[in-house]
Design a protein around this nucleic acid. Structure first.
Lengths: 149, 149
DNA sequence: GAAAAGTCTAGTTAATAAGTAGACTTTATA
DNA sequence: TATAAAGTCTACTTATTAACTAGACTTTTC
C-alpha cells in the first residue's frame, strides 16, 4: 500500500505551489530549483515529475527568465487523488476493483469473490479521502495545526 | 497503493482455508496443491507464502500423509490486516504515518506537514477496514451476495 | 546575444517482485 | 520397515520498476 517517491515528491511540490499561490509572491510562479531546495527533492528528478504533472494538465509553466511552474487551477479545484493517479496510477489495491484501470481477476465469479468484496471497500475508502481532499484543504489543515500548537 | 501478488495469493489462500474449515471436510486441513489448483496460484510460489504465514503464527501445518495447512485460530480471530502486514509489510502509504514501521520523513516539522496529515487519514481508513474485517466477515459477505443474487 | 529558465530523451543502478528448482524432513500406513 | 505423501528450507533466476543522472535542446527576457 505504498506511495512511491514520485508520488510523494509530486504531492509535496503541488502543496508547495499551492502555498506559494496563496502567499501570492509572483502570482504563484515558482522555479523547480526553489521547490527542490525547500522540499529537499533531487532537482533533476523533480523536473521530470513536474513535467508529467504539466502534461496531465495540472500545472502550467513559463519558460525563460523569470519563468517557473504554477497551478493550472485554483487549489480548491485540484484533489490529491488527481495528483496520485497521474504519478502512481490507480488507487485500487487490485485491478478488479479499479475505476480507472479495471481488469477482471482470475476468480470464477467476480461478484462473489471474497477478496474482491473486501478490496472494494478499501479502494472506496482511499478514493473517498483522496478525491475529496483538495490542495486548499491541505493548506487549511496545516494552518489549523500551526495555530493550535 | 497496490497489493502484491504475494499479498493477493495469501489472502485468497487464507479465505479458502477459512471456507474449508467452515465446511469442515477433514477438520479444515487442506493441502497446498488443492489450494493452488482451486485458486489458480503457482504451487511452488504458494508454498513459500503459506510457510511465511505459518512462521508468522497465522497457520499451523501437519506433515506427512494426510497432512496440510489449517488456520491457527478461528476465522473470526484473523483479520485481513494481519495477513497483509505479514506478506506486504506496513499498511501506511508513507513511513511517517506507519504504526508498525514508523520513520520520520525529511520535512522540517512533522506535526504540520501537509502530506503527512493527509496520508494519516488514508492509513487510518485502510487500517480501519483491514483490521476490522476478519476471515469470518469475508465468508459472511460472500454468502450474502450469493443469496442475494 | 547571453543567461535563465523549462523540455525532452535516454541512460544507469539497485531493489523488488514473482516465480523455479531441488534437496531435505516428517509422518502414516501397507 | 520401506515407501510415498506431505510440508520445509535455501538458493537461484529473470523481468520489471523505482529512483535517479546526464546532457543536449528550446524559449524568453533584458
Amino acid at each position: 500500500m505504498r506511495l512511491s517517491k514520485r508520488g510523494e515528491y509530486g504531492l509535496r511540490a503541488m502543496i508547495d505551489l499551492a502555498a506559494a499561490r496563496n502567499g501570492n509572491p509572483h502570482n504563484g510562479v515558482v522555479q523547480i530549483k526553489e521547490i527542490a531546495e525547500r522540499e529537499r527533492i533531487p532537482a533533476k528528478f523533480l523536473e521530470q515529475i513536474l513535467l508529467t504533472l504539466k502534461n496531465a494538465g495540472l500545472l502550467h509553466s513559463k519558460m525563460g527568465v523569470g519563468g517557473g511552474y504554477y497551478l493550472a487551477q485554483p487549489p480548491q479545484a485540484i484533489s490529491l487523488g488527481n495528483i496520485v493517479r497521474v504519478l502512481d496510477g490507480p488507487l485500487a489495491p487490485v485491478n478488479c476493483v479499479s475505476q480507472m484501470a479495471y481488469e477482471p481477476c482470475g476468480c470464477p465469479d467476480q461478484e462473489s469473490c471474497g477478496l474482491r468484496l473486501a478490496m472494494l471497500d478499501v479502494r472506496n475508502a482511499i478514493a473517498d479521502i483522496l478525491d475529496n481532499t483538495t490542495l486548499a484543504d491541505v493548506l487549511t489543515k496545516v494552518e489549523k495545526v500551526k495555530k493550535g500548537a
